[in-house]
Amino acid sequence: MLKLNNINKYYNTGTVNEICLFEDFNLSIEEGEFVSVVGSNGSGKTSMLNIICGSIPVDSGTIYIGKENITHMPEFRRLRRIGRVYQNPAMGTCPHMTILENMALADNKGKPFNLRRGTDKKRVDSYRESLKTLGLGLEDKLHVKVGVLSGGQRQAMALLMSAMTPIEFLILDEHTAALDPKTAEVIMELTDQIVKSKHLTTIMVTHNLRYAVDYGSRLLMMHQGQAVMDKAGREKTAVKIEDLLERFNAISVECGN
């Protein structure tokens, strides 16, 4: 479904600070997989997501979705079939627009943004229904500006909005990291629900090892631009947090920390 072939990515090329992030990196993700990605800071997790989405260019290598080569496709075109939720809850919504307007924006993804009415009155009830599934009472605040909502409420909306229209991929970039433990739990449950009900191929970067173990069908540990652990299926189910910690420690010792 998604294939990264021989990806090379350097930062600060040609300077003394040149850093090699990916050297001959390969990854293949099958349709319907829910991949959790863990790894220390600077291991290339978020860069990998950015490369998939097209936020940063690669130096060489190719990226395929199905049979289509998307290596040189601009970011906004790729996101047509990808939904992305960021770590920062403010990234997924428009603070100065109302909840209703935000929902309408998300609902229009993939349709032409022409001179038709921004909010389709007939859709309001269905927006209210889907907001109700969040259990945050947002369905009664349709005309409230999103900027006054809490981070957790905004992130829940961002998640809902990202998967509102038919997409093939869901990209989650530490989307629970800025939330308090309880809210993070709620958002994670919601994520699992959405992924299962819409059968989305998902990549989730997280620092929460328990989420990585509990959720998803495949687990990836990144280190220095390589996948040092890659477990799927029954192997993944057997992985425990202790195993991950042990591996982390081993890597730290290798690096001399």
Partner: peptide
């Protein structure tokens, strides 16, 4: 929020 516009393809 520019990022959202990109997200909307």
């Amino acid at each position: 929020n520019e990022a959202l516009v990109t997200s909307l393809a």
